[in-house]
Design a binder for these strands. Structure first.
Lengths: 337, 337
DNA sequence: AACCCAATTGACAGCGCTGTCAATTGGGTT
DNA sequence: AACCCAATTGACAGCGCTGTCAATTGGGTT
């Protein structure tokens, strides 16, 4: 049997299609008895509104986009999970779009994608959320968006963040409390604002402890496992290597762990390593990683709710929701040897 | 300026909207000169057909769904990547839908999802592809689908697989050639056909080498890291533990590696461990995993192409494309000590 | 009882395409 | 030159909804 349409429901309930539409969309000003009659017919016919018809008539698609940069694979799974949870709850569907942040014409690609699938709005993850040209392009094209990341300064937009700086501060304190005074730091990608915040938190804690921030103990990474390996190698080959390494994310920390294994350095006895994010990998390598549990799913959910709210109501802007993260101590950190 | 419609293009090109439609959809029987005139207007106006309007009028949505079971996170990233690549190429969008295979009412949930978003077809990954009730439901609802997995026996359907049995055979041979004669095996989920194939390959190789398949060396796992840990613990606590462990996938192999670390067993000197899939994790743990590189992205791409082909042409069924996989030897396997 | 006005309901156009089928075109054939 | 027929083009309905605005309802008020 073919799918029931709004006309079928209206016929069975003995009302006009407009009234069915009102009930289905939870609009006000429908008598309770009428609402029940319609809902009965909806159930009887197993009616589900046609998404394209709604979309065409109502000029909104109930479709959100999730844009992300390719390599961030480990992190994005959790983001997807959170976003989908909120989408389903609210009757939205989700299109995912990995894209290459660096690529020429990325802005046209993104606005093209959004236009073609006519999404109602998009969710942005770092590093896309940190790109001025991409955010500019979205604003110019008047595409509603929410960042799952810190807002760019001076931007009228909405975002959901965690307290990166404070969490990095706590992690550094943790290492200091274990007696480490030479703590290496592997920075994340220089263009990711969250990564800059984490470096700040590290610096703050050292200063608060009265220690100098040695340039030789801070190396540049690029968020990837491989860049973590490279960074750790540089740190561990110094004349006076650090007794602890704090990496800007878990992927890089895992790379550092790998290098330590290869160099025959025992962890945590001879070297403590800490990460940030608490991706599944943090529990799957040995020693398991002490890290900062970032509530990625919760952040993604909150961002999605925010976006849907913006789509429904008048655009509220300048919103930055902060969801706190917490320290998880596992096997990779211990008292300095 | 508002988005250009088919009428705008028709007006500018001086033809009817039907002709524009023909050109845009690459239909035959349009004079070359007309086609060029229309394409010129399309470019001039930056015209992009409205997805919902097409969908409503043409009764197809250019939307595919990718269904997968929640926990398979590590594997699904690659699948998504491959599927998306093919989708973009062909002008399709992708909706992703994690779902819980075990949950009551899963069939209604799936057909509901597909109906609501009115997808043209769906891609199935294991274990969904191995569930008779789910595949039955899709067939009953006449939803076109392709499995990124072996077909269920006796089923008229299409799927893309790799040569699981032969690859497992090769891996076992590899371990045998290193002098291991007591090789433990951690099975994958009993309801995943691919996992059963891998066990068969392991058995084949032992038999081919004239060795008995000891029941005590085969333990049941459930694909997860944790189940790999449990399985490895059981194997290594035997009076005569194996000198090598072959796990049905990399997640379980990684779990085994973790257990060996915790028990103070040196790898690969005292214990060789091998996995299957070559997920990123295989390179991120220490020692790096010897494994079977499954061409997941290629399989996903092939499956997507197959599905789109089926949607376009008359439904071809009974197709099983086989994409070969290959052995990757890393640090986790070595000559028996 | 007549009236009023907010609450409720419905008629109908129109969103931007594709499918159907009829009309037109134009080069080859007699 | 008249005709024919495949190739090409176009007219128009209709997909299933929502938005707009007008019509109706019905309880409170005078």
């Amino acid at each position: 049997m073919p799918r029931a349409t709004i006309d079928d429901v209206a016929g069975l309930a003995g009302v006009s299609i407009k009234t069915v539409s009102r009930v289905v969309n939870n609009e006000p000003n429908v008598r309770q008895s009428t609402r029940e009659k319609v809902l009965g017919a909806v159930r009887a016919l197993n009616y589900r509104p046609s998404a394209p018809a709604r979309s065409l008539a109502g000029d909104r698609s109930y479709l959100l986009g999730l844009l992300y940069d390719n390599p961030s694979a480990n992190y994005i799974t959790d983001v997807q999970y959170g976003v989908l949870a909120s989408c389903r709850e609210q009757g939205y569907d989700l299109l995912i779009h990995p894209c290459d942040c660096q690529q020429a014409g990325i802005c046209e690609e993104i606005t093209g994608l959004v236009g073609h699938s006519n999404m109602d709005g998009v969710l942005l993850t770092p590093p896309l959320s940190d790109s001025r040209i991409i955010v500019d392009a979205l604003e110019r094209a008047q595409i509603p968006f929410v960042s799952i990341a810190a807002l760019q300064t001076g931007r009228r937009a909405a975002g959901v963040v965690t307290d990166d700086r404070r969490a990095a501060f706590s992690m550094t304190e943790h290492l200091l409390s274990l007696g480490h005074s030479r703590i290496g730091f592997i920075c994340g990608h220089p263009q990711h604002r969250a990564m800059a915040q984490r470096l700040e938190g590290y610096r703050d804690a050292l200063q608060a402890a009265g220690l100098a921030v040695a340039d030789s103990l801070v190396v540049q990474g690029y968020n990837s496992f491989e860049s973590g390996q490279a960074g750790a190698r540089r740190l561990l080959q110094r004349k006076k290597p650090p007794s602890a390494i704090f990496a800007g994310n878990d992927d890089m920390a895992a790379g550092a762990v790998m290098v330590a294994h290869q160099m025959g350095i025992r962890m945590p006895a001879e070297l403590s390593i800490a990460g940030f994010d608490d991706i599944p990998l943090a529990r799957q390598i040995w020693p398991t990683l002490t890290t900062v549990q970032q509530p990625i799913k919760a952040m993604a959910q909150a961002a999605t709710q925010l976006l849907i709210g913006i789509l429904r109501a008048a655009p509220r802007t300048d919103i930055e929701a902060v969801i706190p993260s917490r320290l998880i101590v596992r096997e990779s950190t211990a008292v300095a040897g």
